[in-house]
Simulated assay, not measured.
Amino acid sequence: MQKLYEWSNWKTWLVSLIIFGAFLGFILPNEAAESSRITGTSESPDSSFFYSPATLYSIAETYGEEGRSYYIRARYTFDVVWPIAYFLFLTTTVGLLFKPLRKPKWRWVILLPLFGLIFDYLENLSTSLVMNAYPDTLDLFATIAPFFTAIKWISIYTSFLLIPIGSFFAY
């Protein structure tokens, strides 16, 4: 945890902001458009807050074979890098804002973006396994994937919520 705070400085924050902005402005819109084109829908387990195993199987059916292949490929190319981009931005931002507080109870908040990253990868792994096996079912992975997704989103949303809170208390 201390290393993350040491690593959070204005230079790394600026680099992470540029990377994050490039993803939001260019890469994510292009990826979303390509995904919609190939899968035939804008629905994705990644963008839902919570879904049921039945919904995940329904999405797998809707995607078709080509869409499922694309989805899996995207999870191990684009969606390996995107979580790193938001993790860097959120970690350096939270680190800069909460470093001056010097209150032990606030020091742990820098770990929230890391939870987002870890649960994003767990979500990608479990949903990819379900997509790869379809039409066979992997009920264990279809059942735990929505929980990974929800924990990912809670971690990311809370990390973004920490920005105005940290700004208020730190400056």
Rank of each mutant, 00 (worst) to 15 (best):
K99A: 14
T158H: 00
P45G: 15
E61I: 00
A85P: 03
L125E: 11
I18Q: 06
A32T: 12
S159R: 08
R75E: 14
E65R: 10
A54L: 07
T93M: 13
I19G: 01
P53T: 05
P135D: 09
S42T: 14
Y157C: 13
G64E: 09
L96H: 08
L101T: 03
I163Y: 05
Y76K: 01
F119N: 13
V15S: 06
F23A: 03
K152P: 08
L4N: 06
D136M: 14
A145Y: 04
K11E: 09
S69I: 04
I59K: 04
I156G: 05
K11R: 13
S58Y: 05
G40I: 10
Y70P: 06
T39N: 12
L90F: 01
P45N: 03
T62N: 02
W153N: 07
R107Q: 12
G95I: 08
F89W: 10
A145T: 10
S8K: 11
I151N: 02
R68I: 08
T91N: 07
N132F: 12
T39W: 00
G116D: 02
W106M: 07
P100V: 06
A74F: 02
S167W: 12
A33R: 14
T143D: 01
Y76M: 02
S52H: 02
R37F: 11
G21Q: 05
Y51N: 02
A150M: 15
L88P: 00
L114N: 06
G166E: 10
K152I: 08
D120K: 10
L97M: 11
A22P: 04
I19N: 02
P146L: 10
T62I: 04
I38G: 08
R73V: 01
F98L: 09
E66A: 14
P83W: 06
F23Y: 15
E61K: 14
I72K: 09
S44M: 11
V94R: 09
S16I: 07
K103D: 14
T62G: 01
S16M: 08
F160T: 05
E34H: 12
E65A: 11
L17G: 03
S47H: 11
E65K: 10
